[in-house]
Nucleic acid binder design. Sequence first.
DNA 1: TCAGTTGAGTTAACGGCGTAAACTGCGAAT
DNA 2: ATTCGCAGTTTACGCCGTTAACTCAACTGA
Lengths: 250, 250
Amino acid sequence: MAEPISRRDRLRAATVQEIKQAARRALVEQGTGGLSLRGVARDLGLTAPALYRYFPSREVLVTHLIADVYDEVCAEMTAAADAQPADDTAGRLMTVSRTFRHWALTHPAEFALLFGSPIDRAARPEAAAPPPDPDEPEDPAHEAGQRFGAIFAGLVAALYVERPFPVQADDEIEPALRDQLKAWYDTLPVPLPLGVMQVFLSCWIRLYGTVCMEAFGHLRFAVEDAEPIFEAELRSLAGLLGHAETYRRP
Amino acid sequence: MAEPISRRDRLRAATVQEIKQAARRALVEQGTGGLSLRGVARDLGLTAPALYRYFPSREVLVTHLIADVYDEVCAEMTAAADAQPADDTAGRLMTVSRTFRHWALTHPAEFALLFGSPIDRAARPEAAAPPPDPDEPEDPAHEAGQRFGAIFAGLVAALYVERPFPVQADDEIEPALRDQLKAWYDTLPVPLPLGVMQVFLSCWIRLYGTVCMEAFGHLRFAVEDAEPIFEAELRSLAGLLGHAETYRRP
DNA sequence: TCAGTTGAGTTAACGGCGTAAACTGCGAAT
DNA sequence: ATTCGCAGTTTACGCCGTTAACTCAACTGA
């Protein structure tokens, strides 16, 4: 067996896909605020309540959309990485970073959905915890976000394994940070100095900061085209990771 | 004269203040999404259309709110700076940065309003340009944002004037970036190497990145309390600015 | 083959939203 | 004293998310 996919289930899955595609269109065309259940239903020739057969609320639909978008940008980034020589880890990291920036700039609405303020969705007076249903992954967006971060983290870790860059020894790291890093670390199956993940976090923060500011227009007060700034940041990161000499402008 | 403030005008100004205060309450209590004209009106014992006597749309009200919030965080930051010795510019910058982070963490809704994705507000199919009325500042939020940035930029510039830190010479900066920096620079009344503002941008991006990620919960996948990470970043920035030796953990 | 069940989809309705138009009534200006 | 401007109202339109009650086709089991 393992194939209990009835005809109904197939149709249902197809409809779910259609809904998400329509939602995606609305997101792209009208921004995160223009994403409405009624609009999606209209787009599909349905009435709004019909969608409740597939998603229990707009909120959940958005969550699934987020997960899809995460997976998509992950796919783009890994594809870009795989277009680089397998042994050029530093080059792969640079390419992945540039791909991320490019994706952010060409998909502003999706970027805002993933990386903008999450305060509006969630954190409202909802249930303290969602019903603990172990079957369904309770927050697909969260898991997809993990996969996304793992791409960068994996590359930084690989870089360290190939040719260690300078990191603080475990006992040089401030205890408050060390303990937290250790806790996070214990969830990962790799034996590396905690300092590696400290460096990763620093790199990721700078990458995120640059891309976020540019994508949200927070750099326009100074420059119109932030690409040189981004590249300068990349070069600096390459230095941090012990690959100053391999940095190349594209 | 210069005092044509009639009784009516005073009342009107007071009402405007009341409206903004109520809007602020709604923002704090219910997030950026919970900020509704009808809610504000209800809070004031008015009906919703009455607010249109004071603000032509919800959008404009939000814009004014943003400007107010900017001014408020600016005031907090300058107050914190002024609590430091006047000759300790580096200390002032550190204090201002910590104040910014603290404000962000204690005012999540306001922070999201100022620094979250601006894609939902604005950029929708509105008029290409607002009517060019030179009396009223057409975008108070934008101007307030400038003042905010100027606090950091001013401190970095002052730091350089007091004791120059290493920067790229103008002709070492990549032309694409140099020209843009020069254009921005020409709007400022200070004769400094372009590299200073390059360094400022880099610092600001890193500060923004750290605070933004923490405030939006994008660091919780790794650490619960990002304060050590923030302090590490600050220390690194102090180094960039030639003040590695003056950095002190608070 | 026929009854019973499931589930996709509908209509109708509730309460919320931003906003526009028309109207009321008071304070101030002429 | 009359007029006028403006604060505020009522009413209305068209959106929104969500719920409840219903219809009807397809699948199921005897």
